[in-house]
Amino acid sequence: MEEEFVDIITKNQGIIHKVCCIYCDDEEDRKDLFQEVVVQLWRSFPSFRNESKFSTWMYRVAINTAITSFKRGKRLPQRQSLPEQSIQIVDDVYDPETEDKIKLLYQSVSKLSGIEKSIILLYLESKTYEEIAEITGITQNYVRVKMNRVKKKLKKLMNIEE
């Protein structure tokens, strides 16, 4: 089972990286959270019974771990700005405009609360309202309400036109 798990995690590790990027603004914290998420996924792997999509299950465990993780005075849903130097864009084709946009997105998202981060992450990952409701435990209608509020807030933070 361990081999199967490692295989799946290796293929889908992007999900964990994305959650870590959204929730941690420090490289060390990202590494810690990555490990914690992998461990939590491994522990709950035997109880995964294909009742939901594999990616939904991964997001659920990863977001639960990120929001409930504990580091004295650090990491929990904070509203601190992402330090400039922590964003290192690695790309073969350097595009300063894209880089600026990515930086702005990360900086704006880092100002959101833990719940808002999860909502916007799942929106950006094109998850359906049904999946977001399944992950967060709120109804689809309230996901819509919350989504609109978060979008509005993010637009304001990023100075995006309507």
């Binding site: 992007g14 990286h17 994305k18 870590c20 990027c21 990202r30 964003i87 290192q88 864009i89 690695v90 790309d91 894209t98 990515i102 997105l105 990360y106």
Partner: peptide
Amino acid sequence: QASQQKSGH
């Protein structure tokens, strides 16, 4: 794009 670039990960 940010995900593809993985922000250095």
